[in-house]
Write a protein that binds this DNA or RNA. Structure first.
Lengths: 213, 213
DNA sequence: CATGAAATGAAAGTAACTCTCAAAATCATG
DNA sequence: CATGATTTTGAGAGTTACTTTCATTTCATG
């Protein structure tokens, strides 16, 4: 499952420790909390897993858990691909139609996260389907992404990012992409997420006509 | 603000009471809880309003409040236009393009709810913007609506309502429509919700091209 | 190693919900 | 209208996520 915090070469003074001991400890704690949470959820399910248990397994106090993550759902969901997505999107040629740019970016992002940690992507989608609170938080974070998407769409269409049209487009895309994730989880993760996403972007670009395969 | 529970002709034995005393009381209680909630929220804001206060003002016990509404957010948001929307959608001619059908239905629904109780529509949109928990619940209920929308889209395009394409389209529409509501609230409810919705449906139908006004 | 700053833990508190059970209100009868 | 069955309510105790406060520990730095 989720990689352990690989304590690679714990004592090689000059090479790794660009960060102070404090910073490194914080990162470790964060990881510990997250892996403890994932493990407990797999064992017992989301609801049955309390913050106290998480704290105990991660060997920190409950206070500390809350200091690192504002809510229980955040432990599962937090991690920011957003900046990456935005950067990637800006990197695409400016004259490329925005839908194509988006396609490329999503492909890249999904490939990356799949290679990085395939389990987590699945667990999240699964919890998104099963647990309303997680789904909510998921949606919130997608909404955040939607705000970034506005900027990108605005740049590429010469519109105001705060215009109704841009906002609606961005949010419609977000809604569609979220549904892809739900669909994927509900259908036992069959048919690579990347391909599903592709199909979703197609239908959002060209609209839903009568069936034609 | 919200209409009082108009006790019209409180004692006309034969004409109104098709329902037993029990049923009528339940309806009254429900209304009482809701109006108490709206009033308190207006006075103090959402977070500062506790279930205990609501119970007190509605003259019921906190237990009863929870018996009527599973969560605090539901007190604000519950009420089902969904069946109406679906019926309306089915009532449209079967050969009408589904986007047109949807346009008509949304117009009808918005006009109705605006005439029915304009305050509530605004309060909800406003809380949807301000309070994350409400926004979440709002989104959940839109998701529900999205499921119905699947059926309608499937019927009109001869596709499987559970297909990725249909699901994504439905959810994209939901996302877009939700954004309209947020936009409306954030821009001080200017530019009738109906017209904004119209513009949103347009852009979702034809896509977001370069600006052209 | 001393001093200041940051991170942690302990503890008490709040508020949304859940569960259980007994009392009260309604309903269906004879 | 009395009575027993059924439904609805309220009281109370319990759980848990989250907050706030404050003393203690841990690290950074001169």
């Amino acid at each position: 499952m989720t990689r352990m915090t690989a304590a690679q070469s714990p004592y090689s003074p000059a090479d790794r420790p660009r960060l102070g001991l404090r910073e490194r400890k914080k990162i470790k704690t964060r990881e510990a909390i997250r892996t403890a949470t994932y493990a407990l959820i797999k064992e017992q399910g989301y609801d049955a897993t309390t913050i106290e248990q998480i704290a105990e397994r991660a060997e920190v106090s409950p206070s500390t858990v809350f200091r690192y993550f504002p809510t229980k759902e955040d432990i599962v969901l937090t991690d920011e691909y957003d900046p990456l997505i935005l950067a990637e999107l800006r990197a695409r040629p400016a004259d490329e139609p925005w839908m194509d740019a988006l396609r490329h970016v999503m492909r890249t992002a999904l490939d990356l996260s799949e290679r990085e940690d395939p389990e987590v992507l699945r667990l999240r989608a699964h919890l998104g389907v099963q647990v309303p609170a997680v789904r909510s938080r998921y949606f919130e974070s997608m909404t955040q992404t939607g705000r970034l998407l506005r900027e990108a769409l605005a740049e590429r269409t010469g519109r105001d990012p705060e215009s109704l049209e841009v906002r609606v487009s961005a949010m419609a895309l977000i809604g569609g992409m979220m549904e892809v994730s739900m669909y994927w989880a509900e259908n036992d993760f069959e048919g690579g997420l990347r391909d599903l996403m592709e199909r979703a972007l197609d239908v959002m670009e060209h609209g839903l006509g009568p069936e034609k395969p």
